Measured scan of single mutants.
Amino acid sequence: SGNANTETLPSGWEQRKDPHGRTYYVDHNTRTTTWERPQPLPPGWERR
């Protein structure tokens, strides 16, 4: 039932692989990409 990797990503993020097989992350909220895995927001924090 779903990929465990995507469940731990913050809302709006997606994990992808480039043509060389390297994993990167897409932030659909800001339309940016990063090599660093995004950290889920700490409990009690809200994204503004």
Rank of each mutant, 00 (worst) to 15 (best):
Q15A: 13
K17D: 06
D18M: 00
W13K: 01
R47A: 14
N3M: 08
H28L: 09
D18A: 02
T8W: 06
E36W: 12
P43K: 07
T34S: 12
G12Q: 05
P10T: 00
E46M: 08
R22S: 10
R22W: 03
Q15R: 09
N3I: 01
W45H: 15
G44V: 07
P42M: 05
N29S: 08
D18W: 00
Y25C: 01
Y24A: 03
N5E: 00
Q15Y: 07
R22V: 11
R31A: 09
T6I: 06
Q39W: 05
G12N: 11
R16W: 03
G2F: 11
Y25V: 02
E14F: 00
P38M: 02
T32S: 11
E14M: 03
T6E: 13
E46L: 06
D27F: 00
P19M: 03
Y25G: 03
T34R: 04
T32D: 02
W13P: 06
N3E: 12
T6S: 14
G12K: 02
P42F: 06
R47E: 15
T6Q: 09
H28W: 07
T33K: 07
R16I: 02
R22Q: 14
T32R: 06
T6P: 07
G44M: 09
W13F: 05
R16H: 04
L41F: 12
R47P: 15
R48L: 09
V26I: 15
G44N: 13
P10L: 00
S11F: 08
G12E: 02
D27Y: 00
R31T: 04
P40D: 07
P40E: 09
R47Y: 14
H28R: 06
E14P: 01
T30M: 04
L9M: 12
G21E: 00
L41R: 14
T32C: 10
S11K: 11
G2W: 11
N29K: 12
T6N: 14
G21M: 02
R16D: 03
T8L: 11
P43Y: 04
D27L: 01
L9Q: 09
Y24E: 03
Q39I: 10
N29C: 04
E7I: 09
R37M: 03
S11H: 14
D27I: 00
E46P: 07
H20Y: 13
A4W: 07
E46H: 06
T23N: 11
G2D: 15
W35T: 04
P40L: 08
P10I: 03
K17A: 04
D27R: 01
G21Y: 01
E46D: 13
D18E: 05
W45R: 15
D27E: 03
T23R: 06
R22F: 08
Q15M: 11
W13E: 06
T34H: 13
T30L: 03
G21P: 01
T23P: 07
T30Q: 08
Q15W: 05
S1L: 11
E7Q: 03
R47I: 14
D27Q: 03
P43W: 08
S1W: 05
L41V: 11
H28D: 06
H28E: 05
P38L: 00
P38Y: 01
W13N: 05
P42Q: 10
E7A: 05
D27C: 06
D27N: 10
T34I: 00
E36C: 14
P42G: 12
A4I: 14
R16T: 07
E46I: 07
H20L: 13
G12T: 03
E46S: 11
R48Y: 14
R48V: 12
R16E: 06
R31Y: 08
G2P: 09
E46R: 04
K17M: 09
G12Y: 00
N5L: 08
T23A: 13
Q39H: 07
W45Y: 14
K17H: 11
Q39E: 13
L9S: 05
T6R: 14
N5V: 07
Q39M: 11
S11R: 11
T23D: 01
L9H: 07
R47D: 12
A4C: 11
A4N: 15
S1C: 09
N5K: 11
E46A: 08
E36P: 00
R37S: 06
T33H: 02
H20N: 13
T32H: 02
P19H: 10
P40T: 09
R31V: 01
L41D: 15
D27M: 00
N3P: 07
T8K: 14
H20F: 05
T33L: 04
S1A: 12
Y24D: 02
T33G: 02
A4T: 14
R16Y: 04
E14Y: 00
D18H: 01
T6Y: 07
P38S: 01
T8D: 14
W35S: 05
V26D: 05
E36S: 13
L41T: 14
G21F: 01
R16S: 07
Y24P: 02
W45K: 15
L9F: 04
G44L: 10
Y24V: 04
G2K: 15
T33E: 06
R47F: 06
R22A: 10
T34W: 02
N3R: 05
R37P: 11
Q39L: 09
Y24M: 02
W35H: 07
A4R: 13
